[in-house]
Amino acid sequence: MKQLILRQKQVIFFIIAGGLSAIVEIGSFKILSIYLPRLFSSEYNLYGIKYPFSNILSTSCGIITNYFLSIWFVFERGKHSKKKEFLYFISVSVVSTFISLIIFQILYHFVYKDVIDLRFYVLSPEMMSKITAILLVSMLNYSIKKKIIFNG
Rank of each mutant, 00 (worst) to 15 (best):
F98K: 05
G48K: 12
I103D: 03
F98S: 06
S81V: 08
V111P: 04
Y88Q: 13
V11N: 01
I99V: 15
T132H: 05
S143A: 13
K130L: 06
F29C: 01
R119M: 09
S91R: 05
I149L: 10
F150A: 05
M1K: 07
S138H: 02
K146C: 08
E76Y: 04
G152A: 13
V95M: 11
N66M: 08
F40T: 14
G27R: 08
P37S: 12
F68C: 13
Y108D: 02
F150C: 02
S41D: 15
V11D: 01
Q8R: 04
Y142G: 02
V94D: 01
F86E: 01
V115S: 14
L6K: 09
F86K: 07
K130A: 02
L136I: 15
I16N: 02
K30G: 01
S129Q: 04
I116G: 07
F120S: 13
E126M: 08
Y112G: 02
T97R: 04
K50H: 15
F86R: 04
F68Q: 10
L135F: 12
I49T: 08
K30L: 12
G18S: 03
L136P: 03
I144V: 15
Y51L: 07
T132G: 04
S58Q: 06
T97D: 03
D117S: 10
K84C: 07
I149H: 03
L20P: 00
V115W: 06
D117R: 03
F89T: 01
M128I: 09
L123A: 13
D114M: 06
S33D: 08
I90V: 15
E43C: 09
I149R: 01
S28V: 11
N55V: 12
L107V: 06
I64V: 15
S21C: 03
L123I: 11
K79F: 06
S60N: 12
S70K: 00
F73S: 06
